[in-house]
Amino acid sequence: MKKVKRFFRHDNAGLLFVLPAVIYMLVFVGYPILSNIFLSFQNVTVNNLVRGEKKFIGLGNYKVLFKDAVFIKSLTNTVFFTVSCLVIQFIIGFALALFFNKKFTFSKPVRGILMIPWMMPMTVTALIFKFMFQSKVGILNYILMNLGLISENIDWLTKPHTAMFAVIATNIWIGIPFNMILISTGLTSIPEELYESAAIDGAGSFKKFTKITLPLMRSTIESILVLGFIYTFKVYDLVYVMTSGGPVNSTHLLSTYSYKLSFDNFEYSLGSSVANVLLVILLLVGILYLKITMKGEEKNEQ
C-alpha cells in the first residue's frame, strides 16, 4: 500500500487525473479498433452477429474486396474527392484570408460570419445542397440558365459525373472557412517589418507574396493540408445524405461503402475490412500530422 502511495506522490499523481479519460477512450475507441481488425479476419454477417460460430477466414475478406469493382471505385473516388477538395478549398481559403487580413471596418465580423458553413451539421448542409442541385426546383440550374451557361436543366445528382461534382462542391463549401481561418492566423504571425523592408527594396505585392508570405507560411500550410486531408478523407454524412453513394455507386467513398456493406447488406466483416483500409491510409498520412504536432509539442515544452 505504501509503495502504491509513493508511486503516485509526485509526477505520477498526474496518472490519477488522466486515467478516467484514458480508460474511457480504451473502452470505446481502443477496444473497437482491435475488435474491428478481428472482425475483418472473420465472416461475421447478420446470421452470426450476436450468437453462433464466427469462422476465422484470414485475409479472405480483403481478397474479396480487391476483386470488387465497387470497392476499387470507392477507393479511387475517395482519393479524387479528397485531392479536389483540398486544392480548391485551399486556394479559395487563402485568397479570402489575404482579403480579410486587410484592416477595414467589417473585416473581423464578416470573417466571423463566414465560419457558419463549417459549424453547421453536415446533414443540414447536405440537405441544402441537395435542394439547390435539384433539376427542376433547384436554384442552380435557374441561375446557370439565366447566365446562358447551360441550355437545358442538368440532372446533377442522377448522373455519375455531375453527382461527384456536386458532392465535391458541397464539401469545398464546408472546407473554405476552415482553411481561411487557419491561414488568417498564420498570416498575422508574419512580422510587419519584413514587408516594410521589402517595400523599401522595391518589391511589388507579387514578389512580397512569393518571397515572404509563402516561405514563412510553410509550416502552417503543411499542417492545414495534412489536417484537411485527414478530415476530408473520412467524410461520411455529407455523401451519405446527398447521394448515398449513387447513382450506380459513382459517388461511393470508402466510408459510405463500408457503411453500406455493414448496415444495408449486413456483411459486417466486409464492412470492417473496408473501414480498416480507410484507417491504414489515414494513419499513413497521420504520421505526417503527428510529426508536425509532436514537434510543436516539444517546442511548447521547452
Binding site: K234, G271, S272, A275, L279, L282
Partner: peptide, 10 residues
C-alpha cells in the same frame, strides 16, 4: 483522426 467507420460496427 479516426473515421467513424472503424468504430461503428464494433
Amino acid at each position: 483522426m479516426l473515421p467513424v467507420s472503424v468504430l461503428l460496427t464494433p
